[in-house]
Design a protein around this nucleic acid. Structure first.
Length: 530
RNA sequence: GACUCCGUAGCUCAGUUGGCAGAGCAGCUGGCUUUUAACCAGCGGGUCGCAGGUUCGAGCCCUGCCGGAGUCACCA
């Protein structure tokens, strides 16, 4: 399994040995950090802190971070130290550091490299060139890097040798985060967005809960699942494709509002907008309907944007988008009528196929009505909806868990909305179906679709869920929000891989080699069990 | 899954008609005590994604495979 080392890797391994020979532990145990780069740059004041000034009180700091650049000038050097907050320059002089001349000449100049982690103590001053700098009086190696870090330089806003290779960046996210600091910002914002949503929902008294990832019957969405197996029970289990059915059981159980921010898993293709595991917010509130949920949704998203950016006006790609409330409402069939000139309420399969053809859409003629509606709307209407829009009142065929419309139920319409922003679906919500008999019929229709070949239809009637409904579930409003897409929208990232720290990629090892290793691991596991 | 484009040094990239594989940064040696893409002098570093084929000769042309990006399909 040994890999030939590059020249630079060999040199760094030698340096590591040289450090040990010199009596320096290349991997010591701790360092006291009492200041960070951003804070030092922010607080340093020439009048108050200049060590050369009269009556000043020098600012002493102890910092730690990664060496990102070195400028060695004989008996004195500068280097850039990057920590979690930014980068600060360090000035180190042969005759000024506590560790002595040998340490400077041999350890600092010969054994340390870009990429190494070091700790520095010293006083902060401003150089002739005007840069706030820590003048090191002590330097300690904190962790020796054995691989060369890509060196990115910058001058007057121009970035040189920026690491741009997407594959490199996704596979070695640790390097990406180190050399592209703006990537860290995106992920900090991701966390901030999720926290804001949690605080918003917590403030309204809704309970954040956890429901099973491993499910004997999957449901709550139309998607193909990942299948796994439980050894002790000797039964198949599915990784959840949605939290919906479990959360609604909790509403039956008496909670007024529950939500979960969780990973769902769908065994489908990868793309700029799809990762096999992704994060969903699902929220269910008792005694409310989808109209109420619309108001909550727009308020929640607008609030999240404001918390993040201080405004509801955001720039996404080439579009200026306003998340200010209230958002436009457009009925599903009105949208279709605007696009096709035809009122398609209650249309049969054949006429939907004709409309598809008339609009140059290639569709599988075997598709059911629900899928056809979905196809037409997705192709003809969705891409035109840039500003936030509630699309309301969907056909029943598309929505097996939504309640029939209170006025137009007879026309095959349910109380459901989706939020479309920048041409993409962001949220999905309905007045939840709580009539157990109606729900059973919808499930059975799904099973028929499944048997007719629709791979995404639900494969089994969830009898326990129906049992729960039979104990009576209150009228309930439910909402799902695609968190990854929300983060993409609010951070202006055009690929889901740029808002997921470790997106799924094919393994870089050759398949055969990986397979052999997996077999070996399985054999080992079997031995251990025996 | 289909199609298009891409894969050359640690990083960013050149590479002509098929004719000795290059640059900048990084690295190594030496010099330089306020530099900042530090600078000056010198030196090393390559399975050109992998495997075949065509050819006197392939980084370059052809075929297959691997990996990535994009578009489409499915989905959120």
């Amino acid at each position: 399994m040994s890999r030939p080392l590059t020249e630079q890797e060999q040199i760094r391994r030698e340096a590591r040995q040289d450090l040990e020979a010199f009596g320096v532990n290349p991997y010591p145990y701790e360092w006291t950090v009492d200041a960070h780069a951003a804070e030092i740059l922010d607080t340093y004041d020439d009048d108050a802190h200049d060590p050369a000034g009269e009556g000043t009180d020098p600012l002493r700091v102890s910092v730690a971070g990664r060496i990102m650049g070195r400028r060695v000038m004989g008996k004195a050097s500068f280097f850039d130290l990057q920590d979690s907050t930014g980068t600060i320059q360090v000035y180190i002089r042969r005759d000024d550091i506590a560790e002595g001349r040998d340490f400077y000449n041999k350890v600092f100049k010969k054994m340390l490299d870009i990429g190494d982690l070091v700790g520095v103590t010293g006083e902060v001053f401003r150089t002739h060139m005007g840069e706030v700098t820590v003048k090191a009086d002590s330097l300690q190696v904190l962790s020796k890097a054995l691989r060369p870090l890509p060196v990115v330089k910058e001058k007057e806003g121009e970035v040189y040798n920026e690491v741009t290779d997407k594959e490199f960046r996704y596979r070695q996210r640790y390097v990406d985060l180190t050399v592209n600091p703006e990537v860290r910002e995106v992920f900090k914002q991701r966390t901030q967005i999720i926290r804001t949503l949690q605080r918003f929902l917590d403030a309204r008294g809704y309970l954040e809960v956890e429901t099973p990832v491993l499910q004997p019957i999957y449901g709550g969405a139309a998607a193909r699942p990942f299948i796994t197996h439980h050894n002790a029970l000797d039964m198949p289990l599915y990784l959840r494709i949605a939290d919906e059915l479990y959360l609604k059981r909790l509403i039956v159980g008496g909670f007024d509002g529950v939500y979960e921010i969780a990973k769902d898993f769908r065994n489908e293709g990868l793309s700029r907008f799809h990762n096999p595991e992704f994060t969903m917010l699902e929220l269910y509130v008792a005694y409310k309907d989808y109209r109420w949920m619309m108001e909550l949704t727009e308020e929640m998203i607008a609030h999240t944007a404001t918390e993040l950016h201080g405004t509801t006006d955001i720039r996404v790609g080439d579009e200026d988008i306003s998340l200010a409330t209230p958002w436009r409402r457009l009925s599903f069939f009105e949208g279709l009528r605007n696009a096709t000139g035809i009122d398609l309420r209650g249309a049969d399969r054949e006429s939907l196929l004709r409309v598809a053809e008339a609009n140059d859409l290639e569709v599988d003629p075997a598709l059911g009505k629900g899928k056809l509606y979905d196809e037409l709307f997705g192709e003809l209407v969705e891409p035109t909806l840039i500003q936030p829009t509630f699309v309301v009142d969907y056909p029943v065929e598309l929505s097996p868990l939504a309640k029939r419309h209170r006025k137009h139920g007879d026309e095959g319409i349910v109380e459901r909305f989706e939020v479309i922003i920048n041409g993409r679906e962001l949220c999905n919500a309905f007045s939840e179906l709580n009539d157990p008999q109606d729900q059973r019929e919808r499930f059975e229709e799904q099973v028929r679709l499944k048997e007719a070949g629709d791979e995404e239809a639900m494969r089994a009637v969830d009898e326990d869920y129906l049992r729960a409904l039979e104990y009576a579930m209150p009228p309930t409003a439910g909402l799902g929000v695609g968190i990854d897409r929300l983060v993409m929208l609010l951070t202006n990232q055009d690929s889901i891989r740029d808002v997921i720290l470790f997106p799924l990629l094919r393994p870089e090892q050759p398949q055969e080699e990986a397979a052999t290793e997996a077999e070996a691991a399985d054999a080992e596991a079997a031995d251990a069990e025996a």
